[in-house]
Simulated assay, not measured.
Amino acid sequence: MQFFDRLLLENRAWADDMKASDPEVFQRLHQGQSPAALWIGCCDSRVPAEQICNAKPGELFIHRNIANLVHEDDANVSSVLEYAINALEVDHIIVCGHRGCGGIQAAVSGGDALQALPYVDRHLGQVKRLVAEHHVALEQFSQLSQKVDHVVELNVIAQVERLAEMRLVTDSWQARRAPSLHGWVYDLASGHLDEVCRREVEGSGSESAEPDWQRAAAG
């Protein structure tokens, strides 16, 4: 059986199982969505957002790109943010990176790693700048994998900081004191998620919404 034929069959089996446990599930989903969170994750096939969080259909609004980046000039990510914040009014935005990320490794390795992938190379520009900014700290790690995993965390923190400066987010903080921003890292070896940072607005009724910055110790 061809791979794509198997996927179609698996879809039917999945739909039947869903209806067996909850006969009205697809009727409810057809009526609309009200996800609690926007997930900005990596495209890596080993990091399926709903499965690693054990989330149900309709609970996560998802955007994925290589190395889970936020580009202000990227119409794709900006439109996703706009819809999630202004139309769906999500309460949380999660930026999730993962250890062993191939995009991060390419940026850390440098050299000829990205010559054959010019679009990927351009996309990873901000990661390469991040590596350059932290090159002294990265020298303490003797193994490439350790450097990569450290940059994975730095990159997640950088994306949360970038989100916190975007007008879409700051306007929403002023209007409804949401969404809170969360930086997570997924460990492929254990299947566990760890929080590395969080940013949320505290208080209510003030003229300026100042974000409270929390950096968690990596697990």
Rank of each mutant, 00 (worst) to 15 (best):
F3N: 00
F4K: 04
R6F: 06
R12F: 11
K19A: 13
A20G: 14
D22P: 00
E24F: 11
E24D: 13
V25G: 00
R28V: 05
R28W: 03
Q33T: 02
A36P: 03
C42E: 06
V47F: 00
C53F: 14
K56D: 13
I62L: 04
H63Q: 03
H63V: 00
H63E: 02
N68C: 09
N68Q: 07
L69F: 02
V77F: 04
S78V: 12
A84S: 14
V95W: 02
V95C: 12
H98M: 05
G102N: 02
I104P: 00
S109T: 13
S109N: 01
S109E: 10
G110R: 09
L117Y: 08
L117H: 10
L124N: 06
Q126R: 13
R129G: 12
L130Q: 09
V131P: 03
H135C: 15
V136F: 13
L138T: 01
S145P: 03
Q146T: 13
Q146N: 14
V148N: 07
H150N: 06
V152W: 00
V160R: 02
R162W: 02
R162Q: 04
R162E: 05
A164M: 15
T170L: 12
A178H: 15
G183Q: 12
Y186P: 05
A189R: 13
S190M: 11
L193S: 00
D194I: 01
E200H: 08
G203K: 08
D212N: 14
A217G: 02
